[in-house]
Design a protein around this nucleic acid. Structure first.
Lengths: 239, 239
DNA sequence: ACGATATGAATGAATG
DNA sequence: CATTCATTCATATCGT
């Protein structure tokens, strides 16, 4: 997408029931035409998705939004929730990935109102900050009326719908502090496991320290993993 | 995921010798795209995990269950406790997520026994992308003893029985968060779980592992997995 | 056809 | 438990 390359997609409108293989399980009876296992977005769909992405800053729509978006896009072709989900996931990921390989610009801590420039036909129009949340219209289709149709810079007709598109500050800030710190304190722990239990599996009992660090989190306890560095693994499990 | 398709998954059985973080990086090695730091489950491992998930209703295994499961799966390839933990986390989360994407899901707390799989839009199929798993996830009650279906061999001792299989089919309200003493200030703990068989630390541990509950600080710092380990095989895969 | 690229899909890992 | 990120696989399409 972000590439100057204009890899145009064909308009394979009816893209079979995406439901994949139809639960046949294993069989995958492809007697007929398993037309494409994967969703092939139509141009309208892509246009709307990009509009949401660039003009409305939608980056990671919540499940709630995904439902609406997919429902909305369904008039232009078959689509499912997961398609929308993956689309945003991928689009965001790839955009970031590209930026990462080109570290020309360091992350600017100054979060100006910067919206990613539209890479498609759309101009960076629209005020770009909706900021309003679904405060009302609890029904299934909290149509906000304007929504995407707003930025009328798109030449296409098609009025994409009423999607919430609540502002989502598309700061690309992420770059800083990239990898998190595995903050762990090396406590001197000496466990001498011998004889007693026989945790060993596969013959080599070695030291199978399982040490559990309980996290004082209100709801969940995580970090309960073991990490035995010295495990001899000569298992070659071919299949 | 559980799609009936037979593609995907690249059988990356035996992983490297554990040198994490070594190669990968900016190597630009287009050839070997393996040696990634992340666990690549083998088909056997996946099969067993799914078996536990669907046939035994294991959804959020407790710490000691994780230990046993990972120990058990280690026969089939390198695996750590966190892998098991994450697997269940992800599997459950994604199953829920896909339901969330479709508006059809009505949060009906009716205790009807519905199959854990079979969603509407995200992935209708169940498991068995790998072409086996003859069982059907219809029952989900703990069958103590037999546990996971050992598929084959297991030349080693590998704990014949009393291994896994804590049904725990409870969907909600499971209060088994294994909240033990967590408020240790002193990080020096020495647990000798051998010999006398007196499990030094923690509370409810099985008879194998001494597990240590460490609560570093009241901060939100979630502890991460320990990296301490006798680095026997320290071969660096860096190129 | 084949290779390169784009992109949908999947999933391990991690964070809040 | 929800969400997100990174990485990788699979496939569609285009360029040559």
């Amino acid at each position: 997408m972000e590439q100057p390359q204009q890899h145009h997609q064909q308009l394979n409108e009816d893209a079979n029931g995406g439901s994949k293989g139809g639960g046949g399980g294993g069989g995958s009876s492809l007697l007929c035409r398993q037309s494409s296992t994967r969703w092939t977005p139509t141009t309208e769909q892509i246009r709307i998705l990009k509009d949401l992405y660039y003009n409305y800053g939608v980056r990671s729509p919540s499940a709630d939004q995904i439902q609406r978006i997919s429902a909305r896009l369904r008039q232009y072709g078959k689509i499912e929730g997961k398609n929308v989900f993956y689309w945003f996931q991928n689009h965001k990921a790839r955009e970031r990935q590209k930026k990462r390989f080109v570290p020309d610009h360091h992350p600017n801590p100054n979060p100006l109102h910067h919206l990613p420039a539209a890479a498609n036909s759309f101009g960076p129009s629209a005020e770009s900050k909706l900021g309003d949340l679904p405060v009302h219209h609890d029904n299934k289709y909290p149509n906000f009326g304007s929504a995407i149709g707003l930025p009328s810079s798109s030449s296409s007709a098609a009025t994409p719908a009423g999607l919430v598109a609540f502002g989502q500050m598309a700061n690309y800030g992420y770059g800083s502090t990239a990898t998190m710190e595995k903050n762990f304190r090396n406590c001197s722990i000496s466990s001498s496991c011998g004889g007693g239990g026989s945790p060993g599996v596969g013959g080599s009992m070695s030291h199978n320290f399982g040490w559990i660090a309980v996290d004082p989190y209100p709801y969940s306890s995580r970090s309960i993993f073991d990490k035995q560095g010295c495990n001899v693994n000569e298992e070659h499990d071919e299949q």
